[in-house]
């Protein structure tokens, strides 16, 4: 229940002054409020419970998926650690994500600075253009790339997969970096130029240090997107070398291995860590910009 003292003053439920509602409506108010809070509660439970369930289930000891768990042990984690296929897939996902993010940063940071500091013909069009991947379903991007690659005769490889992920995650890094750049003080850059700095020096010694937190936030976001991605990876993953989501996908389709629970928990915790660390480094404005 919502505590009374946390209700905003002057909100619908507590406007000070004015005519108090008739007794009939007061009862209706209470009833309505119950409904409202009830639905919200259902929604919040729906949002949170699945994640909690995963963590709890990963300690189960049985050989199949069920709830509640029969026992609490680290059995499934032990199996996870010895499952070479999963570990390989995780490493692959990691390398692909890191490579994609590096490329993203190299492409997006200069672009972000240029968008904020320069005026040119077709600027808003280009900005929208570079964010198109955000509007397309992942599956469309995936199959488009698949057809394209096979048409020009290149084999599927991790390199191609990285490029696919770059397309997908580039807009995040661009937006977040731009958001940070928009709040940069141009006087600092001008002062540096006045003191004799070339544009390159201004970029390296003034702009980049300022952008760093934004870049980290964007990189964290892009990393998670790439690591968790299935829709594009499904089509571009080379046969022998699967990313973790793809591997798990096939695993879950044909044989519901309980070890997936352990993987899930590890992933949730890792994601949480990345987000917390990312926020620490990037600071408050990272939240604002996302």
């Amino acid at each position: 229940m919502v505590q009374a003292d946390q209700l905003e003053r002057g909100a619908v439920g507590g406007a000070p002054g004015g005519v108090p509602p008739a007794p009939r409506t007061r009862a209706a108010d209470a009833g309505w409020r119950i409904i409202l809070h009830g639905v919200a509660a259902i929604g919040l439970i729906m949002l949170v419970v699945p994640t909690l369930i995963i963590i709890i289930t990963s300690f189960d000891t049985r050989n199949f998926i069920g709830f509640p768990p029969a026992g609490f042990a680290l059995e499934r984690f032990d199996r996870l650690v010895h499952d070479q296929a999963i570990i390989d897939a995780a490493v692959t996902s990691l390398s692909v994500a890191v490579a994609a993010v590096l490329l993203d940063v190299v492409l997006a940071v200069p672009a972000a600075i240029a968008f904020v500091r320069r005026e040119f013909a077709g600027k808003s069009f280009l900005l929208a253009f570079l964010q198109i991947p955000l509007m397309l379903p992942g599956i469309v991007i995936g199959i488009a790339l698949l057809i394209f690659i096979s048409t020009i005769g290149i084999d599927l490889s991790l390199g191609m997969l990285v490029l696919g992920h770059v397309v997908l995650t580039f807009p995040f890094v661009l937006r977040i970096t731009m958001s940070r750049m928009e709040r940069a003080d141009i006087a600092l850059e001008e002062a540096a130029r006045n003191l004799g700095a070339s544009r390159l020096v201004v970029f390296g010694r003034i702009q980049l240090p300022y952008l760093a937190p934004g870049i980290v936030a964007g990189a964290a976001f892009a990393f998670l997107s790439s690591f968790d991605n299935l829709t594009v990876s499904l089509f571009l993953t080379p046969v022998g070398d699967m990313t973790l989501p793809v591997h798990l996908f096939f695993l879950m389709r044909y044989d519901l291995d309980p070890v997936v629970a352990a993987v899930a928990t590890v992933q949730v915790l890792a994601t949480l860590t990345i987000i917390v660390v990312g926020l620490r480094v990037a600071g408050e404005d990272a939240i604002v910009s996302t």
Partner: peptide
């Protein structure tokens, strides 16, 4: 916080 696969798994549970 979770990837699509993980979410699906949770609902299966």
């Amino acid at each position: 916080l979770t990837s699509g696969i993980i979410r699906a798994f949770a609902w299966i549970v």
